[in-house]
């Protein structure tokens, strides 16, 4: 079996794009100290809203814009629950995933069986949105590490009491981070429906949002780490599809487990490193997953 390395690489970065967007968004959310388990729900919302807009307008780029808005809009439900109503973040995130999956399935019925408009191909045979994802990696890194707002955001995530005492608005910062995470997840979801599968099917994100959450852990909460994790995942996906196409004597159902098993293995390896390594240690934000309530 001949495999052209360049075409494999192109497939790999394409396969990793949905996860890359979602994980970069979630990275910013978690650096602000919020654990949003609703990534899957926001992705599927973006997948449907983006597909519907692209189909109705015939313009795929408009689809991605609408997907970003839809993802951000639905993430505000989570933001309201956790930031205003001080609800448990794990439960609220799960609620967002369940609600998003249901909502998309409900409104998606009329769009089943229709085809998305064709995506224009960008420079170097690479889709424009793939480029955008790659560009977002240094942008997010630069924002988190080289800007004042990024520093405030990290401070809020590391120790919300201290950030509050310094006069920073913890809730507003987190609200903005959550909305950004929603928009990025929405774009990631739309990439699946508009650019990869080219149609809408119920539950089409198939756990990509959860894999994105695992990749944020894998990245040790850094943007370059997210890229590495997304590419690793993309590699496993492409390899698995190649093996399926090549007719390897392993049942298709078992091959298609590969991305999920790889995610578990990677998660275990990185957690073990963070747990046992004396030097590295976990870089998880100090206030991750805890709610902030200002008494004064």
């Amino acid at each position: 079996m001949m495999i052209d390395p360049l075409s494999v690489f192109l497939l790999l970065i394409s396969a990793s794009t949905p996860i890359l967007f979602a994980a970069l968004g979630e990275l910013v959310v978690e650096r602000a100290g919020v654990l949003n388990l609703g990534v899957e729900g926001m992705m599927i919302t973006g997948a449907l809203a983006g597909f519907a807009a692209a189909y109705a307008s015939g313009n795929p780029f408009l689809g991605f814009a609408v997907a970003a808005l839809a993802g951000a809009a639905i993430s505000l439900l989570f933001a309201a629950l956790t930031q205003l109503f001080l609800a448990n973040q794990v439960a609220s995130g799960l609620a967002l995933t369940l609600f998003g999956l249901g909502l998309a399935a409900m409104f998606g019925k009329p769009f089943e069986g229709v085809k998305a408009p064709a995506m224009p191909i960008g420079p170097l045979r690479i889709n424009w949105i793939v480029w955008l994802g790659l560009i977002m990696v240094p942008v997010v890194w630069w924002f988190l590490n080289r800007t004042r707002r990024g520093l405030i955001l990290r401070g809020v995530g590391e120790n919300h009491e201290a950030a509050h005492a310094l006069g920073y608005d913890v809730r507003l910062t987190r609200l903005a981070a959550i909305a950004f995470g929603g928009a990025m997840a929405g774009i990631g979801g739309a990439f699946i429906s508009i650019a990869t599968v080219l149609q809408w099917t119920e539950g089409m994100t198939a756990g990509a949002g959860w894999i994105a959450l695992a990749i944020v852990v894998f990245s040790n909460w850094t943007a370059p780490g997210v890229l590495a994790g997304a590419w690793l995942f993309g590699g496993v996906t492409v390899l698995q599809l190649r093996l399926q196409a090549a007719g390897v004597a392993v049942p298709v159902q078992l091959l298609s487990m590969a991305p999920y098993l790889a995610t578990i293995i990677v998660l275990v390896a990185i957690s073990a490193r963070q747990k046992y390594s004396r030097r590295a240690g976990a870089a998880a934000p100090g206030s991750l997953g805890t709610n902030f309530h200002a008494l004064r």
Binding site: W210, V217, M257, Y260, L261, T263, I264, A269, A272
Partner: peptide, 15 residues
């Protein structure tokens, strides 16, 4: 290993 039971148990649903 300290791996998140949330993510592992969820991945195992797909498996």
């Amino acid at each position: 290993f300290g791996a998140s039971e949330i993510l592992v148990s969820l991945m195992l649903v797909y498996v």
